[in-house]
Design a protein around this nucleic acid. Sequence first.
DNA 1: TTCGTCATGTAATGGGTTACATGATTAC
DNA 2: GTAATCATGTAACCCATTACATGACGAA
Lengths: 190, 190
Amino acid sequence: MLELAVLGLLHESPLHGYELRQRLKATLGSFRAFSYGSLYPTLRRMKESGWIAEDEGDAEVVAGAPALTGKRGKVVYKLTAEGKERFTELLAEAGPASWEDEQFGVHFAFFAKTAPEVRVRILEGRRARLEERREGVRTSLARTRERLDSYTLQLQEHGLESVDREVRWLSELIETERNSIRSNPSTNPL
Amino acid sequence: MLELAVLGLLHESPLHGYELRQRLKATLGSFRAFSYGSLYPTLRRMKESGWIAEDEGDAEVVAGAPALTGKRGKVVYKLTAEGKERFTELLAEAGPASWEDEQFGVHFAFFAKTAPEVRVRILEGRRARLEERREGVRTSLARTRERLDSYTLQLQEHGLESVDREVRWLSELIETERNSIRSNPSTNPL
DNA sequence: TTCGTCATGTAATGGGTTACATGATTAC
DNA sequence: GTAATCATGTAACCCATTACATGACGAA
């Protein structure tokens, strides 16, 4: 999850950890936030896996002295070739995991770099998942409505409306994607 | 989290694990789901803590034979006196944790058993939290709008609208609560 | 010179999930 | 008699969080 997000952001430009986290917030908005406590270890693991590498090719090394003093400066990371491959690979696999709450936002955030058919599959999968959930809540609500207190009821109904809203949003997006694929395959409609 | 939910459900009536999970789904709706893998260990811990106990007083023991065969039947749990206290205690503490995404739904689900002032505090805390988040996204969006691709933008805006919707919902609830406290303290407006 | 924020990192912990294993009960 | 679903539980793991520790750098 964090991994995909990091790959996606570094795909655009090299960044250091701190900056990466700001971008993460800016990109995922209200969907997800990550702490440094998970970011840095992830960065280390990804480096060990060979997907990212320290980027030495930036203007940080100006004076000769700092290098000798062994001071700890910014650590700028960039994608490696394997990292790029891994990113494409992760983007392509539109499995059930991609339409769960936590993953969907991250996948969607990188739709501009995702193949049109994959986009549609993920959107449809997500919609189906939500409709399923909605039906579950609806029927359970129908069975137990009178037994629930008004607060619980409020909660259910607000939840139901939220799901409805997202389903409508997804439907619009799917429509747009479909039209775009028909008229002009492999481009972004938005 | 799960603990509070379990206490809340058992506060109404004794239940066994499996049933508890169904109720959990019915009560929390689309907000949260728990697996048996977390429910049963939680039940064990809660029993060890003395908040719940096995309820022997139900109609399960009809024939004499089953007891001898040592068969594993339903394990019905009920709240102990300490459990009731613990529940009240948890409901009363309206700390910052109560207005985070994961906790809020659970707290809200038991609002009918929560003191009116606590209800208002939690609703206001939640609203403030969301407004804060909304402002964060809004300003970051204002700064970076042109640098974002259209999908990321869509995601941000949909997120923003969702937050807006919840804020409005909360405002209505707060209004209702306030009127109710003024006119008829310590009752439920809904 | 001290405060804020930029910047990197670790250790302990938390709170869950998935997959698995097992068996009773009900409906067909 | 067999399939579904009710029912309980464990073990391995995952993915993050909080709290903490450290230090550079710029602005007041």
